[in-house]
């Protein structure tokens, strides 16, 4: 529990297996504060499992996770979210039957007595201001009163990011933010991430769009068979033959890696 690490987020020797398959095999990764870090690797290399392990959705059988020097191993997703780690999903999770604005208030519900939660109205004026500000930022303000279920695929990704931002996380884990999103939105998304990063937010991004990752990230980790086997600057990763090797043998190689 003591500060065993000076990294912002550190996973040490995490292990997790499903049946006989090791999804995480002695996996370690370090994330520096204030940086945009990329995480790439072929399908099935354990990227999402690593995300799940960090955010508390899956327990790990061995190893530890530290956030700001504190162990967060074994904590529940709510507890980890409350510590300031927000996350988006590969398959976007929004609240389709609620309006865009109501989606924004969900993440403000924590840390409250149950009686207060029945008496207090949803969304204080302060939260409302913040929600408007964030929706304006991601460009969804004009859709605030629409049901979230009516949004397009790309807009859903933006909403997911927006409702997590209202809780003001310091670390954001984005799982394929550019997946299935059209080109102009991808560029916009990149700008948003850079802007948020300039405000001090740290990012860890899983992405298959190599162009997006390599132009956006300060540092890139490459995973294969359940562990991170290399870490480096985007240009180092781009030229490392081991990275290409890791993707070889993957059937959908052409789709997986977009070489600029």
């Amino acid at each position: 529990m003591t500060a065993e690490t000076d990294a912002f987020l550190e996973v040490k020797n995490a292990t997790r297996s499903y049946g006989g398959v090791k999804a995480l095999d002695n996996c370690s990764i370090k994330i520096s504060e204030g940086k945009i870090t990329g995480l790439i690797g072929p399908n099935g290399s354990g990227k999402t499992t690593l995300f799940n392990a960090i955010t508390g959705y899956e327990s790990i059988e061995g190893g530890d996770v530290y956030f700001r020097g504190q162990s967060i191993t074994g904590k529940t997703p709510e507890q980890i979210f409350a510590l300031g780690i927000g996350r988006t999903f590969q398959l976007t999770k929004i609240f389709a039957r609620m309006t865009v604005m109501e989606n924004m208030f969900i993440a403000t519900q924590r840390k409250e007595g149950w009686l207060r939660s029945v008496i207090r109205p949803a969304g204080s004026s302060e939260e409302l201001d913040r929600a408007v500000e964030i929706l304006k930022f991601v460009g969804l303000l004009k859709l605030a009163e629409s049901p979230a279920g009516s949004l397009s695929y790309g807009q859903r990704k933006l909403l997911e990011l927006a409702y997590i931002l209202i809780a003001d996380p310091t670390l954001l884990l984005l799982d394929e933010p550019a997946g299935g999103v059209n080109l102009s939105l991808i560029k916009e998304l990149g700008d948003h991430i850079r802007y948020l990063n300039s405000l001090g937010k740290t990012f860890l991004i899983v992405e298959h769009n190599m162009d997006f990752v390599l132009t956006l990230c300060h540092e890139v980790n490459v995973m294969s068979s359940g562990s991170v086997f290399m870490t480096g600057k985007p240009e180092q990763v781009r030229s490392d033959p081991r990275v290409l090797d890791a993707y070889l043998g993957i059937d959908d190689f052409e789709e997986e890696i977009v070489v600029p």
Binding site: A82, I94, I106, Q109, G123
Partner: peptide
Amino acid sequence: TRLGVSVRAAMDNRFAAQLVGVE
């Protein structure tokens, strides 16, 4: 109410609600 938002979020998507800190 705040509880209502949590309840409806949990009805809509239990897993995602948990993710953003709804207990």
